[in-house]
């Protein structure tokens, strides 16, 4: 199988993944400590807000506030990781260090680079998702063994945001433009029913929130966290994957336009 997807690169893309792994090897402490970070957030909520807020209803279950928020934090961490891996770092290589230009002098193609970056983002996201879900089990923030499936949901989330991020990074002109990324990711974070249920939003706003990929992700993960399955989950998952595919197609086109005009 020489082509992973029809228009998206060849097996050579794996060298881009390899390159990024090599890069992180030189910063292994930073990489390793990333596995601990979810503990801080989960502990902070578990210790404090859990007592203040008490329990909430998810589907037909009552769950602790910590168990309500934890999947939302997992979704958020998948989104934030994607911003680092797919907006920040590629922007640096695309427009500041011009590392991609030197890669293009080798047999690798533009599509290989776009695909390689997306694959790397997924690899790293997968590792972090495993650790995050592990921490949730450890702190008792899950109420069902099915919570293990949240890893898959988190991967789909990372895919969606990484691909969209990769596309977005090609439009940035300077570091100043990262404010625009924050301007999008911040409201998503605060208003995607991560901290409190959708029912608390004004009705008009609730409709808007439903389009937020972070809301769809958080809701999907929350359902899995308490082991309650429903048909909507397929739709939510499909929404995330579809966003990812659109993002990847745009990213590949934009990369080609910038690197090989």
């Amino acid at each position: 199988m020489s082509r992973v997807l029809p228009v998206l690169g060849s097996r050579r893309a794996r060298h881009v993944v390899e390159r990024n792994a090599l890069f992180y090897r030189s910063q292994w402490l930073m990489f390793a400590s990333g596995f601990v970070e979810p503990l801080f957030y989960l502990l902070s909520i578990g210790i404090g807000l859990n007592h203040l807020v008490g329990s909430l209803t998810v589907g037909s279950h009552r769950v602790s506030y910590a168990a309500f928020v934890a999947p939302g934090m997992l979704a958020t961490s998948a989104m934030n990781g994607a911003v680092i891996d797919s907006v920040f770092n590629p922007f640096f290589r695309l427009k500041i260090s011009h590392a991609y230009d030197s890669i293009l002098a080798t047999p690798l193609d533009v599509d290989d680079i776009a695909l390689g970056e997306a694959l790397w983002a997924l690899t790293r996201a997968g590792l972090y998702a495993v650790s995050f879900v592990g921490c949730m089990f450890l702190l008792g923030d899950t109420s069902s063994p099915w919570a293990i499936l949240e890893i898959v949901g988190a991967l789909a989330t990372s895919f969606a945001f990484s691909a969209l991020g990769l596309a977005a990074c090609t439009y940035l002109r300077s570091w100043q433009d990262f404010d625009l990324i924050t301007l999008v990711s911040l409201p998503l974070f605060l208003f995607s029913a991560t901290f409190f249920p959708l029912s608390l939003y004004p009705r008009a706003l609730a409709t808007v929130v439903a389009f937020s990929p972070l809301y769809q992700s958080a809701t999907l993960l929350r359902g899995l966290n308490s082991g309650q399955f429903d048909g909507w989950m397929i739709l939510r998952l499909g929404y995330l994957v579809a966003l990812g595919l659109v993002g990847l197609a745009v990213a590949a086109r934009r990369f080609r336009r910038i690197l090989s005009p």
Binding site: H15, E18, R19, F23, S97, H98, A99, S102, I103, T106
Partner: peptide
Amino acid sequence: VPQEDTFDLDLSLRLNLEMFGRYYD
């Protein structure tokens, strides 16, 4: 040899060359 030097600044000289070799399989 492009007009501007483009390296992975955080990697050693050796790793820069080795990584580049991998792109050629």
